[in-house]
Amino acid sequence: MRLGLAIARRLLRLGLVLLCVAAVSFSLMMASPVDPVDAYLGPQMAQVSPEQRELIAQRWGFNDPAPLQFGRWLQQLASGNLGFSHVYNQPVGDVISQRFQRSIALLGSAWLLSILLGFTLGIIAGAKEHSPLDKMISTYAYITASTPTFWLAILSIMFFSVYLGWAPVCCAGPTGVLSSETGLLTRAHHLALPVVTLTLLGTASITLHTRTRMLALMRSEIATHAFAQGASRLDIAWRHGVRHASLPALTLALASLGELFGGSILIEQVFAYPGLGRATVEAGLRSDVPLLLGIALFTAVFVCSGNMLADSLYHLIDPRMRRKYA
């Protein structure tokens, strides 16, 4: 019963956050210099007389006060209609779902890899402070933490794709081949370089946070007690360290979903990978208002659910917090 209540409260909170995001992005669009009629007409702008433009604007309600337009948009949203994207000539819902499927292959695998790699490296580095291994891992983490994503992406394209020729230069599949005809292996081949680049960068923060938690544990009375029982550092890292370090790592991993989306915009742009990030850039450059608003809302849902999941998992994993829901 209390669990149900907790879930209901979280969903309500998610709804409120979405409403706020919708309001803010809508008012940003209203304030932007984008003229929706121009954007809709595109190159045919010149063929339309001012009277006709006025007619379109009236038909679509652009002359109504902003709150009324916002209300109408919300009504459409509630009935599941996100609008029509003129850049892709498809309903916004379809564009997002197609693009997201491609993005999730890239982001999801990079995310998972960076968690696993970052966590392992952090545990190893933190198990023995100032050991050569710790120094190597920390140096690597500090360097990659301060490396811009796009710069590393450009470098890796230059080295692996152009110089060595190991990986394709762009896109999610070979050019001139329908996406339904590209095999799984070809897709993986095209995915490899962006995933590796994103992973290399994503590991840094998780490594550093895990390492810090491990250092604190190794200096704690828990570790001293374990040493007194004859445990080795490896033993302590494995039995106590993994439990203690998984809490901050998990929080960080789920809370960094937003950052991941931001990173994906840059990475997809550099690798010309047709995912959600590139759709965002396209929509922004070519004033596709419905698509931009749709992506903003979708991203908000994604990031919020990540945070909510982190919050809930914390209660499940840490026995000291579990009581509240029992």
Partner: peptide, 29 residues
């Protein structure tokens, strides 16, 4: 000898790992 021949009962209760059930901790020892 640590653990095998010599054992320490520490002063602070913080020496118990808060994330591990009692019997498991004792069995680790």
């Amino acid at each position: 000898l640590r653990g095998r021949h010599m054992a320490l009962i520490p002063q602070s209760l913080n020496a118990l790992d808060p994330l591990v059930r009692t019997q498991r901790q004792v069995s680790w020892a």
